[in-house]
Design a binder for these strands. Sequence first.
DNA 1: CAACATATTAAGTTTTTCTTAAGATGAAAT
DNA 2: ATTTCATCTTAAGAAAAACTTAATATGTTG
Lengths: 302, 302
Amino acid sequence: MSTRLPLTALRAFEAVASHMSFATAAAALYVSPAAVSQQVRALEATLGYPLFERLGSSIRLTAQGAQLLPRVKRGFDELRRAMEEAAHSHDATQLTVSMLASFLQRWLLPRLPGFHRAHPDIDLRLSASNLVVDLAGSDFHAAIRFGGGRWPGLTATHLFDDWLVPVCSPEQLERLGPIRSFADLRGWTLLHSDTEPWNDWVRPLFGKRCQVPARSVLDDSAAVAIAAERGHGAGLARWSLAAADVYNGRLACAAEWAVRHRRSYHLVAVPAKTRLPAVRAFGDWLLTEATAFPPPPVKLRR
Amino acid sequence: MSTRLPLTALRAFEAVASHMSFATAAAALYVSPAAVSQQVRALEATLGYPLFERLGSSIRLTAQGAQLLPRVKRGFDELRRAMEEAAHSHDATQLTVSMLASFLQRWLLPRLPGFHRAHPDIDLRLSASNLVVDLAGSDFHAAIRFGGGRWPGLTATHLFDDWLVPVCSPEQLERLGPIRSFADLRGWTLLHSDTEPWNDWVRPLFGKRCQVPARSVLDDSAAVAIAAERGHGAGLARWSLAAADVYNGRLACAAEWAVRHRRSYHLVAVPAKTRLPAVRAFGDWLLTEATAFPPPPVKLRR
DNA sequence: CAACATATTAAGTTTTTCTTAAGATGAAAT
DNA sequence: ATTTCATCTTAAGAAAAACTTAATATGTTG
């Protein structure tokens, strides 16, 4: 940007275009019509073309004026909203958090009533999105992310680790018996997800030389759990997403071992917002819930 | 709005928050650090709380500052983009037009090469949307709409009328013969769309006393044409969407008569943009194409 | 054609914004 | 601990901008 935005002129233009009158625009801005006229004229001079056609008593937008208007209106609307929000920021007890839909549905949602009981004053708004939102450039206060723990420019607090657990329907476990060795895998159809191939589980336990082919790859972890529940085979599930189904008996752990996931859950926020009371309260509550969330009831390979 | 936006102060705040420094923000705005300091201080005074924590040599955003920043940034970004566009509006040969996906695919797209040949300088961008875009508040130059011809605040030029034509697969027409009377409808499965019930065709031809029940209602006109093509029955199609398939033999006109549709196609724009050369060129071209588009090859009931 | 409503221009005034120069304040170095 | 440095802040005056008033132009309406 070499030259500064002509803000006053743009504001005058917006007012005139909105009211389609210099006089009423001037009244709305609490200034004289002459002032508005001069501002608009100055803007036209810098752009090099007219924004209005003057027809003596009335005016109308030129094509260029009509093109300029929507953008300018959107810009000022956003600024007005910003000031509006800022003016009421003391009584804003809202807390907006973004996270993956799978985590929200399978882990957080069942625990949420507890949070509302502990903090009835906080108006928590959860947004399930599979896109990674830009916390610095958005209105979100925080996000729950699954990853390595390093996000540049953001503070991350570790919530809990995840585990790779083979799961299947209870009937199938009954019929085929638990997986104890690499050879035991032979009898099973293995269900892979995009992000968690079975080799991530096989190698840490049986060595790098052991491998399984990646067939029946489903697009996400939740789908693998569902397919396993329906008896389509052994799914390599993330414990965070499968735990509830294991506890209520719809899924069974198919193997003796679980392997620690490389990634884990974090509460992530811009440094400044980390210090907000509501964010701290939510983070503290998440941490106690996370601590109370037991690892899978099998042997754990870290 | 009782009080005007503190635009200069907001601009100073944005610059400081973006650079995380009063000094470099001042340099970016071509003013002294003192000026920036005063502006930010004034903004903090009107809001009643600090936006930055001053740590002597460095600063950081407060939580409220971090909440304010994204909105303010978005607002100014929009204004900067507006000025950017406006500065290059002379060499902007872009033309953006919104319309229904069905019209785009089945009527406009096959004719488009002709437009590009006639106007190679115009960079036409088509947007298929089933929502009615707000032309006054968007960057679209124009839209093609199917309707009665009256849109308040917008100028509409009539392109062509549409016709309700019963269509079916050629084999079915062979087997059942053309529909000539109300009684002939007995033998047919009638495929309705949401917006064009068969009674719209039956009543003008056979009188208000004749009616057919509305079974197998599909959700849009294009779906009806496809179902008819597959031999599922007689669909009441809009000629504009079915014509291409009739000409290439995939569909046949199932009846002797077509009935004029209540609605017709229009090119719609904000008055000011109607006068843009590119919009006129596109409108003129559409009009000649529309004139060259023949009505269905059956008897016409207007 | 006169009366009216509206926009524009020019000159002068007010207000805002900015600069300069002299403090503060905290971090890093001695 | 003290100096040094980099940074932000404050206060007063200067510059720039935005605004007002009053006279003028330009279509529209009765």
